[in-house]
Design a protein around this nucleic acid. Structure first.
Lengths: 110, 110
DNA sequence: CTGTATCCTTTTAGATACTG
DNA sequence: CAGTATCTAAAAGGATACAG
């Protein structure tokens, strides 16, 4: 016997999973997506949503997500500086993943 | 007008998303789950599956996943030391999340 | 084959102070 | 309100050598 194994071969390395993970690499990123699914939110709203996140890190995550095309940034023409973030069409594509995460979490918790 | 905002309030902080993220925090973890969904695999098989992972990091991830109850470790009674890792029932619960990740990745890629 | 031990780098994040 | 700047810490990961 020469063949070293008859085990099933794993999926190819170009698995789309890797692509998805490039987007969800940070725990904060996933949470930001979640909160924006409720609708557009201001920078300050997100800071309150994501209790504990620092302004620096929030800015970093938002900039990254903007580069990736997940969210869009818009300055509001208000008196005091205000900025609104909203999901792009691409960003909305992740909803099924978040829903699946929530479902499995509930099952494990119970 | 005193209320500072009429914006939708975000979901409660005990969102199950956080629980799920505790499991999928590492990119390697998600990939390991994926490969184990094909069936039980040896330590060396996983090293080849996860091209680029070091033995140290693979061990770290596997130990952590074992503690979390995602996988089970079993020493095989072979002549040379061999260890098999397989998903637990809890580990299998994550399949829908992985599937959703793959679907969105494919949509974004195209 | 399945790890452990060391050392080092990168990424992520927190704290704090400050600005337009 | 929405950031920037700076410094620091913790976590994740890589490389290499070595062990049972």
């Amino acid at each position: 016997m020469i063949a070293r194994s008859t085990r099933r071969t794993p999926p190819p390395e170009d698995c789309p999973l890797d692509l998805c993970l490039k987007f969800l690499a940070s725990a904060w990123t996933t949470r930001i997506l979640w909160f924006l699914h409720c609708g557009p939110r201001h920078f300050g709203d997100l800071r309150r949503d994501l209790r504990g996140i620092s302004a620096k890190v929030l800015t970093q995550r938002l900039r990254r997500m903007e580069e990736q095309g997940l969210i869009a940034r818009r300055k509001l023409p208000t008196r005091t500086a205000q900025v609104e973030y909203r999901l792009t069409a691409t960003g909305r594509e992740f909803k099924p993943v978040l829903d699946a995460m929530i479902r499995v979490a509930r099952r494990i918790r119970d």
